[in-house]
Design a protein around this nucleic acid. Structure first.
Lengths: 143, 143
DNA sequence: CCGGATCCCGAGTGATACTG
DNA sequence: CAGTATCACTCGGGATCCGG
């Protein structure tokens, strides 16, 4: 239980590689604005969390998802899944049985987004205590 | 103005590399929960957008930031910058002059987070029209 | 019984005005 | 210029209801 992280060596290497790159550079202004819009929708707490559990295990039923995505309300789960379906990130399959059974799984597009977010997960895991330390320091600074 | 994307070859390569990786794998449950918390705070629309403009050009004054981060209110700008400062992502420098001058720049930690988000930006730029097409299709599907 | 739609309420967000 | 204060409003969470 001590350590635990455990990413593949490839993931670590990729993260370090990313970290060595220059930051994002600019695009055509019109496209850039569209990209920002898209980022705005996709850079959402619940979207990322849902994406993550679906990336690990898929397909999943609605009820299983609400267990695995810790802290989410049914409302936001439904809502976020709908948006993700609309954006082509997940497919929703309804089985006409009783009791109802609805499964969600990532599309190929969703999988690539999950992979893109991978760097953020690695970052979070690696810098957890750095951030924690920064917070404590900040909170103790004189007002 | 035609095309325009233009990422470095290294960025493209890194993105493709990421996309080829397996999705994030699990950690120690306790740590995983902390990581999720951190993701929750950092995977925020405004945080990403601010991070991006600061990554491109830094340091920036408050007023310049509010111009560059399109659509943000002063309130959310202040609030998000404070949170980012607390998390050790940005440094805030106050010059005791009149009129006031306050500059924000990324810390090294902030730079690495920006780099980690890079994959998402690349994804968004690459899949813009795929998403747009998916939306149109979805919206036209019978109710 | 499961998936999810609806309603209500409190917290968070945005626009505007104001201040050191 | 860089914020804070105020207020109206939207959005998210929880409980409840419902159709298959």
């Amino acid at each position: 239980m001590e350590r635990a992280p455990e990413f593949t060596k490839e993931q670590i290497a990729a993260a370090q590689y990313y970290a060595s790159l220059t930051p994002p550079i600019d695009l055509d202004p019109r496209i850039a604005s569209l990209v920002r819009d898209l980022i705005g929708r996709v850079a959402d707490k619940w979207t990322m969390l849902i994406l993550d559990v679906l990336a690990e295990k898929s397909p999943l039923r609605f009820s299983r998802l609400s267990e695995l995505v810790e802290g989410i309300s049914q409302k936001m789960l439904t809502q976020t899944l709908r948006a993700m379906e609309r954006d082509g990130l997940v497919v929703r399959t309804v089985y006409p049985v009783v009791p109802p059974k609805v499964e969600y799984k990532l599309t190929d597009l969703g999988i690539t987004l999950g992979a893109a977010f991978c760097g953020v997960w690695v970052w979070a895991a690696n810098n957890l205590d750095t951030v924690e330390k920064a917070r404590q320091e900040f909170d103790q600074r004189p007002r």
